[in-house]
Computed example of a mutant assay.
Amino acid sequence: MTDSPLKTKLQSCENGPFSVTGFSIGHRGGGTLQIPEESMQSEQAGARMGAGILECDVSFTNDMQLVCRHSLCDLHTTTDILTRPALAAKCTVPFTPANATSPATAICCTSDITLAEYGTLCSKMDGFNASAKNPQDYQHGTPSFRADEYNTCATPLSLNQYIDLVDSFPGYRNFTPELKTPPSQVPMPFKGVYTQQQYARDIIEAFIKKGIDPARVWTQSFNPPDIFQWIKEYPAFGAQALYLDESGDDGPANFSAAVARLPSLKAQGVNLISPPINYLLTYCDATNRTIYPSSYATTAKAAGLDIVAWTFERSGPLYNVKNTGDYYYQSFNQAVNHDGQLYEILDILANQIGIKGIFTDWAATVSYFGNCFGLTGPVGGSYYKPGM
Rank of each mutant, 00 (worst) to 15 (best):
D57S: 05
P177I: 13
D80P: 07
N129I: 06
D339I: 12
D361V: 08
T78E: 02
Q161Y: 11
C108A: 14
G354E: 10
R146V: 02
A200Q: 05
Q198Y: 01
C372A: 14
D226N: 15
F359A: 06
L272E: 13
G325N: 04
P182W: 09
T8L: 08
N288I: 08
R289V: 12
I231K: 14
T21F: 04
V379C: 01
M40C: 04
F359M: 10
K210V: 02
L305T: 01
Y279W: 13
N351V: 02
S295P: 00
P252A: 15
T152I: 13
T77C: 01
A257H: 08
V67I: 14
D213M: 04
K90P: 08
L179R: 14
G22W: 02
A154S: 15
Q196Y: 10
Y368C: 05
K385L: 09
G119V: 00
N174L: 07
R173C: 09
T96W: 02
T61F: 03
D326M: 02
N62P: 00
E178L: 09
E205W: 07
E149V: 12
D361R: 08
I107S: 13
T61E: 07
A363P: 03
P189D: 12
L342W: 10
N320T: 15
G31T: 03
G380P: 08
R216W: 05
Q65M: 10
C68L: 05
F228C: 01
P103E: 08
T298Q: 11
C56A: 14
T176H: 09
K133P: 00
F169E: 04
G354Q: 09
G46K: 01
L375M: 13
P214T: 07
L179G: 13
D285H: 11
A106E: 08
E233A: 13
G16L: 12
Y383G: 10
A215K: 15
T21M: 00
G251K: 04
P224C: 01
Y292R: 10
D63S: 13
F255C: 01
F373G: 06
Q197V: 12
Y296M: 06
I227Q: 06
Q334S: 12
I345W: 00
